[in-house]
């Protein structure tokens, strides 16, 4: 069942064409991995999907409503789509718990008291229950990134976008963050990842999209794309990173 359907997405920064006609469909519960060299448009595509960047052209249908309509209020869409960034982007002046509570309190107007049990449960699920009152600079990179994931989940999004969330981590901390993604995958969360973790993408993704110069050059299930890529450029990229 197609949940999100993007057609002909275009985005330029000045004369630099970053997205050059992207078509992408995502089913409910599906996990899609975007791979490709840096500058190929992975991050921009994610940022456009939750309207952090306005598109130049194209449409994004979410439950058959075009959310890319210029002038549409982006806030309700963003509430439905969670996003996690490469550099965590936690709010440094708030504790982990406050980071997570802020949006549900302000956007959904829920009280701290009603939220606290379920937020505590979220922290517990990801092994962070003893870190709730820590400030971001008192946490390791892996813990910060997990708090960032909890923060996005607390809004109960229908889909999560992950923008190279392990790229800024020390190698020994990557595993704990990937474990969180495995857990979400098992719970059936719809996810789109821009990633350099090829092994992880191969293990869990339903679909891999290889981006090249702002286009999806090749799109296939991981077992197909990794072992028998059709395009020469895909092969070249994979031979560099595998």
């Amino acid at each position: 069942m197609v949940w999100l359907q993007a057609k002909g997405l275009r985005k330029s920064f000045g004369t630099n064409v970053v997205l050059d006609g992207i078509d992408l469909s995502i089913d409910r519960g599906e996990m899609v991995c975007l791979i490709g060299a840096s500058g190929s448009g992975k991050s921009t595509l994610l940022r456009c999907l939750n309207l952090l960047e306005p598109l130049d052209d194209g449409e994004i249908r979410l439950d058959s409503v075009d959310i890319a309509e210029p002038g549409l209020d982006p806030a309700p869409v963003r509430r439905r789509i969670g996003m996690v960034f490469q550099s965590y982007n936690l709010f440094p002046h708030m504790t982990a718990a406050e980071n997570v509570l802020l949006a549900p309190r302000r956007v959904k107007r829920m009280t701290r008291e009603t939220l606290l049990p379920e937020v505590t449960e979220l922290f517990r699920r990801f092994g962070l229950e003893d870190r709730m009152d820590h400030y971001p600079d008192q946490l390791s990179g892996g813990q910060q990134q997990r708090v960032a994931i909890v923060r996005a989940l607390a809004m109960k999004p229908e889909m999560m976008l992950f923008d190279e969330i392990t790229s800024a981590l020390d190698p020994e901390l990557v595993g704990e963050v990937l474990d969180v993604l495995r857990q979400l995958r098992a719970e059936g969360m719809t996810m789109v990842l821009a990633t350099h973790e090829m092994g992880f993408a191969r293990e869990l993704a339903d679909k891999i999209c290889f981006l090249d110069r702002g286009r999806i050059l090749e799109e296939a299930p991981p077992e197909v794309l990794f072992s028998a890529p059709k395009e020469e450029r895909t092969r070249a990229f994979l031979s560099r990173v595998l």
Partner: peptide, 28 residues
């Protein structure tokens, strides 16, 4: 800018982003 992006991605309004995310850090 990434602080604004994080706040927007959570659905916070511009006013709330300024009040709860940007200003407390800026004033300090």
């Amino acid at each position: 800018q990434s602080q604004r992006a994080a706040a927007s991605s959570l659905g916070l309004s511009e006013g709330d982003t300024m009040r709860y995310v940007i200003l407390p850090q800026a004033i300090r």
